[in-house]
């Protein structure tokens, strides 16, 4: 592997880790369900970028693209289901606070 590609991965890896930190921090600290989904989205963005960069530097662009398409499909399903759950919680509690989910039966 050429030095240029290794350098590319190092630079992208640096920013991917920063994106992971942003997403993880928001996921841990936030109390709003929709913000938690947004944090999850940022984590997925980091994974998408990692897949594309690794595919690019190893010469497996086709495999990386097909994996990213799968990730995007799953991402949409997650967002839509999470949005539905958030709406149901809002109708039930009149609030999107995750702490109030503890009041649920079960």
């Amino acid at each position: 592997m050429s030095l240029n590609l290794m350098q590319t991965f190092s630079i992208f890896g640096f920013f991917i880790i920063l994106l992971f930190i942003v997403g993880t921090y928001c996921l841990v600290v936030t109390r709003n369900i929709l913000r938690a989904v947004i944090a999850l989205e940022i984590l997925i963005k980091a994974v998408t970028l990692l897949l594309i960069v690794v595919g690019y530097i190893t010469g497996n662009v086709a495999l990386a693209q097909s994996l990213v398409i799968t990730v995007i499909v799953i991402e949409v399903v997650i967002v839509v289901i999470a949005g539905g759950i958030a709406l149901s919680v809002f109708r039930h509690n009149d609030d999107l606070d995750v702490r109030r989910l503890q009041n649920l039966k079960g």
Binding site: M1, M6, F9, S10, I17, N60, A62
Partner: peptide
């Protein structure tokens, strides 16, 4: 950050 990655599957 190590940049030397070897692909497990080559397409």
């Amino acid at each position: 950050i190590p940049g030397d990655i070897k692909p497990a599957l080559s397409t």
